[in-house]
Design a protein around this nucleic acid. Sequence first.
DNA 1: TCCTTTTTGTAGTGATTGATACATAAATAT
DNA 2: ATATTTATGTATCAATCACTACAAAAAGGA
Lengths: 203, 203
Amino acid sequence: MPERGRPRSFDRTAALRRAMEVFWAKGYEGASLSDLTTAMGINSPSLYAAFSSKEALFLEATDLYTRVEGADIWTTLEQAPTARLAIEGFLTRTAKAYSQTDRPQGCLIALGALHQDSSQGPICHDLRRRRAENHMALKRRLERAVAEGELPADFDIQTAATFFSTVQHGMSIQARDGATHAALMATVAGAMAAWATMAGDPA
Amino acid sequence: MPERGRPRSFDRTAALRRAMEVFWAKGYEGASLSDLTTAMGINSPSLYAAFSSKEALFLEATDLYTRVEGADIWTTLEQAPTARLAIEGFLTRTAKAYSQTDRPQGCLIALGALHQDSSQGPICHDLRRRRAENHMALKRRLERAVAEGELPADFDIQTAATFFSTVQHGMSIQARDGATHAALMATVAGAMAAWATMAGDPA
DNA sequence: TCCTTTTTGTAGTGATTGATACATAAATAT
DNA sequence: ATATTTATGTATCAATCACTACAAAAAGGA
């Protein structure tokens, strides 16, 4: 039991959530230590004692984001009864999540660190790994649908997974531009129009 | 004729192009004055004398980008004989441009300044305006196709323009993740599958 | 009651940020 | 030739960056 020493005077998880929101809104580079400590309500020595460094804090923040904000979208993908409903639910929930006005628009994983400087370190590597994981989750769901006979054996899983994953990334930028929920749903409608052709559906 | 005083010892346009490449690779925030002056081969007083500020330099750089790098994509959109070929050419040229290995991947306009800090100033406003202009160009091309009878009168232009524009934005992130030309073309194939449904084509 | 352990707030660290002061250099104008 | 105008290189500016040294505070263990 590490119950020795002066107890921490703030809620570590609550502070982490605040940090996540700052990174989400401003990106890794754009979030200064000053921004972070202000939002978290602590001084920098407390931040470093609890989270080690800005980099480690960001990695913890993306993990929290994946677990809290991303869970709904990805469980929908896996639990929907058909692949079509899985993809449609995945995109529909994305549209809803990305257009919430009580939090930053778009996705932390997609937008958090896209440029060269932040790319070289572990930050961009971590985000890329998470994006690749999402792509794999799409592939797995489509593979399952082929295995279950819902989709034809010659269904191009790789193309479809890449396409839907890219559409979701695009929706992050669209959301950052202030797109309404309705505008994001227009993109979903477009993507589902592709499904009809890919799967050979009449509608 | 402003031929008075000591002549400038560097090529202003060449230096601007170098600055554009730095902003393209690192984003507005990520590009430091030191990065810029090094790439441009000049000292900071020369940069400020010729371009006024980092902000003004960025605005000039995005203008150059639009004229030089974007021209090919957007003339294709307008000059293709049918709307289908216009959209397909637009996306195909995007895939090619975004995956070139001799320059930064993805689009400066889409990726240059997505976060809050840079958003509030004129930088993000300028990029948003340019992205909105691209969306309008897509709409105009589709409107023309409806007017010419190529597309049915009830074709949902707004939805289609938003969709294809969002796909292009997603391709920027995909390209930043190191996607090959073939991977980007998979996204194009997906988007064109949507066209088939939208326009009621058999293929 | 001490001693140890950990956190806290204050006040800084050197490095880097975007942007300039200033003297010198190099051109035209008179 | 002298004056005027503009550009250049050196050497900075104050502000902010991520990060920490240090001593006081607050807990448990002896």
